[in-house]
Amino acid sequence: MRNLVFYILLLSLSACKDDYKRSADVSTVFIEPIVKDSLLSVRAIDYDKEYIYYGSSDHFGKRGLNKQFKINITELELDNSKAHYKNVLTYNDKPLHFRAIKAINGNLFAISIANPTRLYKLHLKSNKPKLVYEEINEKAFYDSIDFWNDKEGIAIGDPTDDCISIIITRDGGESWTKLLCKDLPKAKEGEAAFAASDTNICIVGDHTWVATGGKTSRVLYSPDKGNTWEVYSTPIIQGKETTGMYSIDFYDEDNGFAIGGDYTKSNDTLANKIRTKDGGKTWEIVANGKGPGYRSCVQYIPNRGGEELVAIGFKGIDYSNDSGNSWKHLSDEGFYTIRFLNDSIAYAAGRGQISKLIFR
C-alpha cells in the first residue's frame, strides 16, 4: 500500500509539473499604474523592496511601493500615502535630464545626458545628491549605467573622440575614470548609442556587452569588467542615425538578444531583432519581416531558461516563448523601458506613467 501511495503521489506531481509547463506561456498582461503624470518622460527605472527609482526629463526620483504612515504635526493630519521624492538638479538654471540610473548597495546613481554630463550619487535614505563625476564636452551624451558589484560600475555614452565614451568606477562610485580611446575599439563614422531605455549595457558576472547604434551598430565586449575590450559586428539594420540596436540583454554568458530598428519607421520589421548563442561573437536575424517592429527595450523573463522574452516600445508590448523566433502582441500600451521583479511581474515606464505589469 505504501508503494502504491508513493506511485500515485509521483503521478500527481508529474501531472502538476506538466500542467505548469503548459500554462507557463504568457497570454496576457495586466497593467496597474503606479504613477500617472503627464509631465513624466521616463526611460530609466530600477527598484528595491521599498521604492521604484526613475530618471525623467527634468529630474530623477523615487516612488514608494508601500504606504508610509506619517503624522504631520504642523497641519495635525495623518498621512498614509506612498512617498514620492523628486530631485531636480540644474545647470545654468536649466534642469538636467536623466535617462540612466542604477540603485545598488544602498545608493542611487543617476547620470545626465548632454553637456555637461553630471553623475550623482545619492544614499537611498538621503535627499542630498553628491556630484561624483562631471564631463564638459559639446559632444558628451551618456546613455546607460550598470554595476558589476557593489564597488565596480560602468557608464557609456556617445563618442567625444574616436571611441565610445566609457567611464568606470572601482570604489563604489565615489570616483569615475574615463577610458582612453587607445584602450578601446575605434568607433566608426556615425556610430553612437541610444538613450532609449538604459539597456545599452548588459552584465553577466564579469562579462559586459555594450550595444551601439546609428550608421554602424556593433557590440563592444569585455570579459573582465572593462579592463580589456573587443568588438563584434551585427546584422541588425543600420546605416542611418536612427537605426541599429536600442537594447541588449543576455540570459547567461552565451545567449543574448538585441532589438531596435528605426524609430522613425516604427512598423518596419526587417532585420530589427537579432540573437546570439556564442556570447555575442556572432549574431543572426530572427523573426525577419514579422512583428514586433521598432522596440526600445528587450528583457529576458527570469528563470524561464532563456526562451521567453518581452519587448516594449511606444507601439506596445510583445512576448516570445521561443527565444525570439516568433512573437505575440500583448498590448498597444506604450512604454520605453522595463525591469522584471520575477518571472511574472515587472515594472515599466514611459511617457506619463510608471506601471506594474503582471504577465499571465
Rank of each mutant, 00 (worst) to 15 (best):
M1I: 05
R2G: 05
N3T: 07
V5F: 06
Y7Q: 10
I8P: 04
L9I: 12
S12W: 10
S14T: 11
K17H: 08
Y20K: 15
S23W: 09
S23A: 11
T28V: 10
E32F: 01
E32R: 01
P33C: 01
L39T: 11
S41W: 05
V42G: 02
R43L: 08
D48K: 09
K49F: 11
E50T: 13
Y51W: 15
I52C: 13
Y54R: 10
F60N: 05
F60S: 01
G61S: 01
L65H: 15
Q68H: 15
F69D: 13
N72T: 07
I73E: 14
L76Y: 07
S81C: 04
A83F: 02
H84P: 00
Y85K: 00
Y85F: 02
Y85R: 00
K86V: 02
V88S: 09
L89H: 02
T90K: 07
T90M: 06
D93I: 01
H97R: 12
R99E: 14
I101L: 12
I101Y: 10
K102L: 13
P116Y: 02
P116D: 01
Y120K: 06
Y120R: 02
K125R: 15
K125Y: 15
S126M: 07
S126N: 11
E134H: 01
E134W: 01
K139D: 13
I145Y: 09
W148M: 03
E152I: 14
G153L: 06
I156K: 03
G157V: 14
D162W: 07
I164T: 02
R170I: 08
T177I: 01
K178R: 10
K178C: 00
L180R: 03
L184H: 01
A187E: 10
A187R: 07
K188N: 14
E189A: 14
E189P: 10
A193Y: 08
I201S: 05
C202T: 15
I203D: 11
W209D: 05
W209R: 05
V210G: 01
T212Y: 11
K215M: 15
V219C: 09
S222Q: 03
P223N: 02
V231M: 11
V231D: 03
K240L: 14
T242W: 12
G244T: 14
G244Y: 13
M245C: 13
M245R: 13
S247Y: 07
D249E: 14
F250A: 07
E253I: 10
D254Y: 04
D254A: 07
A258H: 06
K265R: 05
S266I: 00
N267F: 00
L270T: 00
I274H: 04
R275W: 10
T276S: 14
G280Y: 03
G280E: 06
K281D: 13
W283Q: 02
W283V: 06
E284R: 13
E284G: 09
V286H: 12
G293T: 01
G293C: 03
Q299Y: 10
I301A: 07
I301G: 04
P302Q: 05
R304T: 15
G305T: 09
L309V: 07
F314I: 08
F314V: 03
N325L: 14
W327D: 03
K328G: 04
F335Q: 06
F335C: 08
F335I: 06
R339W: 12
N342K: 12
D343Q: 09
Q353C: 12
L357G: 00
